[in-house]
Computed example of a mutant assay.
Amino acid sequence: MGKDSTANKGKTKDAGKGKAAASEEKGGKGKGKAGKDELGTCTYVKARHILCEKQGKINEAYKKLKEGWLDSGDKVPPAEFAKLAAEYSECPSGKKGGDLGWFPRGKMAGPFQEVAFNTPPGVLSAPFKSTHGYHIILAEGRKN
Protein backbone atom coordinates (compact mmCIF):
# COMPACT_ATOMS: atom_id res chain seq x y z
CA MET A 1 0.00 0.00 0.00
CA GLY A 2 2.85 2.39 0.76
CA LYS A 3 4.13 1.94 -2.78
CA ASP A 4 0.76 2.78 -4.33
CA SER A 5 0.24 5.95 -2.29
CA THR A 6 3.75 7.16 -3.21
CA ALA A 7 3.05 6.51 -6.89
CA ASN A 8 -0.25 8.37 -6.67
CA LYS A 9 1.38 11.36 -5.03
CA GLY A 10 3.84 11.63 -7.91
CA LYS A 11 1.04 11.33 -10.46
CA THR A 12 -1.02 13.99 -8.75
CA LYS A 13 1.87 16.45 -8.80
CA ASP A 14 2.62 15.75 -12.47
CA ALA A 15 -1.04 15.94 -13.41
CA GLY A 16 -1.30 19.39 -11.87
CA LYS A 17 1.72 20.59 -13.81
CA GLY A 18 0.35 19.05 -16.99
CA LYS A 19 -2.96 20.90 -16.64
CA ALA A 20 -1.22 24.25 -16.22
CA ALA A 21 1.05 23.58 -19.18
CA ALA A 22 -1.88 22.40 -21.28
CA SER A 23 -3.84 25.53 -20.35
CA GLU A 24 -0.97 27.76 -21.49
CA GLU A 25 -0.55 25.86 -24.75
CA LYS A 26 -4.26 25.78 -25.62
CA GLY A 27 -5.19 29.40 -25.27
CA GLY A 28 -2.47 30.82 -23.12
CA LYS A 29 -5.10 31.31 -20.41
CA GLY A 30 -2.71 30.95 -17.51
CA LYS A 31 0.12 32.84 -19.15
CA GLY A 32 -2.08 35.28 -21.06
CA LYS A 33 -3.97 36.37 -17.98
CA ALA A 34 -0.74 37.04 -16.12
CA GLY A 35 0.56 38.93 -19.15
CA LYS A 36 -2.62 41.00 -19.35
CA ASP A 37 -2.48 41.75 -15.63
CA GLU A 38 1.13 42.81 -16.04
CA LEU A 39 0.21 45.07 -18.96
CA GLY A 40 -2.77 46.53 -17.16
CA THR A 41 -0.78 47.51 -14.07
CA CYS A 42 1.72 49.87 -15.67
CA THR A 43 1.38 53.59 -14.94
CA TYR A 44 2.61 55.13 -18.22
CA VAL A 45 2.41 54.11 -21.87
CA LYS A 46 4.30 55.48 -24.87
CA ALA A 47 2.23 55.15 -28.03
CA ARG A 48 1.56 56.34 -31.55
CA HIS A 49 -1.85 56.35 -33.15
CA ILE A 50 -3.77 57.03 -36.30
CA LEU A 51 -7.17 58.70 -35.92
CA CYS A 52 -9.75 58.84 -38.68
CA GLU A 53 -13.33 60.05 -38.67
CA LYS A 54 -14.43 57.36 -41.14
CA GLN A 55 -14.13 53.65 -40.48
CA GLY A 56 -13.25 52.97 -44.12
CA LYS A 57 -10.18 55.21 -43.92
CA ILE A 58 -8.82 53.57 -40.73
CA ASN A 59 -9.43 50.14 -42.27
CA GLU A 60 -7.43 51.19 -45.33
CA ALA A 61 -4.49 52.30 -43.15
CA TYR A 62 -4.70 49.07 -41.13
CA LYS A 63 -4.77 47.02 -44.34
CA LYS A 64 -1.55 48.70 -45.52
CA LEU A 65 0.13 47.92 -42.19
CA LYS A 66 -1.20 44.37 -42.20
CA GLU A 67 -0.10 43.61 -45.76
CA GLY A 68 3.27 45.31 -45.31
CA TRP A 69 4.22 43.84 -41.94
CA LEU A 70 1.72 41.81 -39.98
CA ASP A 71 0.97 39.20 -42.66
CA SER A 72 4.65 38.28 -42.74
CA GLY A 73 4.73 37.94 -38.95
CA ASP A 74 6.84 41.06 -38.43
CA LYS A 75 6.13 43.86 -35.99
CA VAL A 76 5.41 47.26 -37.51
CA PRO A 77 8.47 49.52 -37.14
CA PRO A 78 7.63 52.91 -35.56
CA ALA A 79 9.13 54.73 -38.57
CA GLU A 80 6.77 52.92 -40.96
CA PHE A 81 3.81 53.54 -38.69
CA ALA A 82 4.81 57.23 -38.55
CA LYS A 83 4.72 57.49 -42.36
CA LEU A 84 1.18 56.13 -42.47
CA ALA A 85 0.10 58.30 -39.54
CA ALA A 86 1.33 61.39 -41.42
CA GLU A 87 -0.63 60.26 -44.47
CA TYR A 88 -3.87 59.04 -42.86
CA SER A 89 -4.32 60.53 -39.38
CA GLU A 90 -6.74 63.41 -38.91
CA CYS A 91 -5.31 64.13 -35.46
CA PRO A 92 -2.75 66.96 -35.05
CA SER A 93 -0.33 64.28 -33.80
CA GLY A 94 -0.32 62.86 -37.34
CA LYS A 95 2.20 65.56 -38.29
CA LYS A 96 4.52 64.01 -35.69
CA GLY A 97 3.99 60.48 -36.98
CA GLY A 98 1.11 59.91 -34.57
CA ASP A 99 3.47 60.20 -31.60
CA LEU A 100 1.57 60.80 -28.35
CA GLY A 101 4.66 60.42 -26.18
CA TRP A 102 4.34 59.09 -22.64
CA PHE A 103 0.95 59.49 -21.00
CA PRO A 104 -0.34 58.39 -17.60
CA ARG A 105 -3.32 56.21 -16.81
CA GLY A 106 -6.43 58.40 -16.58
CA LYS A 107 -5.37 60.96 -19.19
CA MET A 108 -7.02 59.32 -22.22
CA ALA A 109 -10.72 58.54 -22.73
CA GLY A 110 -12.19 55.09 -21.99
CA PRO A 111 -11.67 52.80 -25.00
CA PHE A 112 -8.45 54.52 -26.05
CA GLN A 113 -6.90 54.08 -22.61
CA GLU A 114 -8.11 50.48 -22.40
CA VAL A 115 -6.47 49.54 -25.71
CA ALA A 116 -3.29 51.56 -25.11
CA PHE A 117 -2.65 50.05 -21.67
CA ASN A 118 -3.40 46.50 -22.80
CA THR A 119 -1.38 46.43 -26.03
CA PRO A 120 2.14 45.03 -25.53
CA PRO A 121 5.09 47.19 -26.67
CA GLY A 122 5.83 46.76 -30.35
CA VAL A 123 2.34 45.45 -31.08
CA LEU A 124 -0.29 47.10 -33.28
CA SER A 125 -3.89 47.21 -32.07
CA ALA A 126 -6.79 46.31 -34.31
CA PRO A 127 -8.90 49.29 -35.40
CA PHE A 128 -11.37 50.41 -32.72
CA LYS A 129 -13.85 53.22 -32.14
CA SER A 130 -13.77 55.91 -29.46
CA THR A 131 -15.76 59.12 -28.99
CA HIS A 132 -13.22 60.88 -31.26
CA GLY A 133 -13.40 58.47 -34.19
CA TYR A 134 -11.56 55.33 -35.27
CA HIS A 135 -8.04 54.53 -34.09
CA ILE A 136 -5.10 52.20 -34.51
CA ILE A 137 -2.49 52.25 -31.75
CA LEU A 138 1.14 51.19 -31.89
CA ALA A 139 2.36 50.72 -28.32
CA GLU A 140 6.04 51.60 -27.99
CA GLY A 141 6.75 51.27 -24.29
CA ARG A 142 5.45 51.14 -20.74
CA LYS A 143 6.77 52.08 -17.34
CA ASN A 144 5.64 52.50 -13.74
Score class of each variant (00 low, 15 high):
W69S: 00
F112Y: 08
K75Q: 09
L70H: 05
A82H: 09
D71Y: 08
A79P: 04
F117D: 00
I58L: 11
P77F: 03
L39V: 03
I50H: 11
F117W: 01
A85L: 15
D99I: 13
P92W: 09
K95T: 09
C42H: 05
G73W: 06
Y44T: 04
A22M: 10
G122A: 03
G73I: 04
G97F: 14
T41E: 12
L65Q: 05
H132Y: 14
K54Y: 15
P127Y: 11
K75H: 08
T41V: 05
G106Y: 00
I58F: 04
V76A: 07
F81L: 05
R105Q: 01
V45W: 03
G56K: 10
G122H: 02
E90P: 06
K95D: 10
I50S: 11
A86Y: 03
A47H: 10
I58M: 12
H132G: 09
E90N: 06
K57F: 13
P111K: 12
T131S: 15
A86G: 14
A82M: 13
K83W: 10
S93N: 15
F81Y: 03
K95I: 07
K83H: 10
A21L: 12
F112H: 09
R48W: 14
A86P: 04
N59R: 11
G97T: 14
K96H: 07
T119N: 02
L39P: 03
S130D: 08
S125L: 09
A34W: 11
K107V: 01
E90F: 06
A21Q: 11
S125Y: 05
L100M: 06
E25C: 07
A79G: 07
S130Q: 07
Q113Y: 03
E53A: 15
G97D: 02
M108H: 01
D37Y: 07
G94Y: 01
F103W: 00
A116T: 01
A82D: 13
E38I: 06
K29W: 06
A126P: 04
A22T: 10
G27A: 11
F117T: 00
A79L: 15
S23C: 09
R105M: 00
F117H: 01
A22S: 14
D37L: 15
G27L: 10
K107H: 00
G28F: 05
L124I: 08
E80R: 13
S72L: 11
P77V: 07
T131V: 15
W69N: 03
A126N: 12
A47E: 12
Y88I: 12
E87M: 13
C52D: 08
A126T: 11
Y62F: 15
E38N: 12
K19D: 12
Q113E: 15
I50L: 14
G28A: 03
V76W: 06
E114D: 13
L39A: 09
A116K: 01
P120N: 01
G73Q: 09
K75I: 01
P78N: 11
D71A: 07
G73F: 02
P77I: 03
K83A: 13
E60C: 07
R105N: 00
S23V: 14
A20R: 15
G97W: 04
L51V: 10
K26S: 12
H132F: 12
F112P: 00
D71G: 01
P120A: 04
S23F: 06
E114P: 01
